[in-house]
Design a protein around this nucleic acid. Structure first.
Lengths: 112, 112
DNA sequence: ATGACAGGTAGGAAATTTCCTACGTATAGT
DNA sequence: ACTATACGTAGGAAATTTCCTACCTGTCAT
C-alpha cells in the first residue's frame, strides 16, 4: 500500500480546481470509472482533462488501473485526511461563532 | 452577523496558498493582530502580503477593524464550514482506508 | 495487418497568480 | 504644520495554471 505522504500544499492546490473537486465527487458517488465517462461531465478537450487527472494522480487522490484499453480511475480519499486535520483546530472557532460565543472565546487563551 | 455565502470555489482557492493558510493559523493561535506583526513571518514585501490579506478578506475568512493607525485582523473561521461540509461525504472512504492500514500494521506488529 | 478507439504527452497561447517598486491615504507624535 | 508610521492601491514583470491542437502509444476488432 502506498503510504507516501504528499505535501499539504499540493493537496490544497489540487482541490483548488472545481473540475478536480467534481471528479472526486463523481468517483465517490458513482464508483471507479474510465476517463471517457468522467470526461462527459466537462466542457473541455480530453488532453486538458487528462492534465487534471495527472494532478489528482500525483497527489494520490486517485489511482488508475488499466482494463483493456480503458483506464479505470478510482478515488483514494486518504490524502483528504490531511485537509481534515488542518481544519480541525479551526472547528471550535466557527462552531462557537454559530452559537454566539465569540466574545467568550476572545477572553480565553486557548491551551490545548 | 454576516450570513453572506462566499462560493466554495473562492474559499478553496484562498486556501491553496501556503501563505494564506499560515495567516489563518497565526490568527487562530495568537489571536487578532495588526498587519505588521503578521507580516513578520513572511519573506515578502508588505504590498504583496497585503494582497494575500485582501484575498482572505474577500472570502470572509478574516475581518479587519481599525485601531489607531493599525488594522487588527481577526480570524473568521465560519467559511471553513464549507470546506468541512465538502469533505464530509469522503470521510468514510479514507476512514475505511485508515482502518485497513491500521489492521495491516497490527498484523505486522503481531508477526515481529 | 489495418483501422478504430482510449487515453496519454508535447508544445505553446492565454489567463491567472504572485511578487515587485512606486505612490497614496490616514493617523499619531512633535 | 511637519514628519514618521501603518497599510493600502496601481501598474507591471515573472511564474504558474489552464486549455488548446497535434501527435504518440497501446489495445481491440476485422
Amino acid at each position: 500500500m502506498n503510504t507516501e505522504r504528499v505535501s499539504e500544499d499540493r493537496i490544497f492546490a489540487a482541490l483548488a480546481s472545481p473540475v478536480r473537486r467534481e471528479v472526486l465527487r463523481l468517483l465517490r458517488e458513482e464508483g471507479p470509472q474510465p476517463v471517457q465517462r468522467l470526461a462527459e461531465h466537462f466542457a473541455m478537450t480530453r488532453p486538458s482533462f487528462s492534465e487534471h487527472l495527472r494532478v489528482l494522480r500525483e497527489t494520490g487522490l486517485v489511482t488508475e488501473n488499466k482494463v483493456g484499453r480503458q483506464r479505470l480511475y478510482r478515488l483514494e480519499a486518504l490524502p483528504l485526511n490531511e485537509v481534515q486535520q488542518w481544519l480541525r483546530p479551526f472547528e471550535r472557532f466557527w462552531r462557537d461563532r454559530l452559537t454566539g460565543l465569540r466574545d467568550l472565546l476572545d477572553q480565553m487563551d486557548d491551551e490545548s
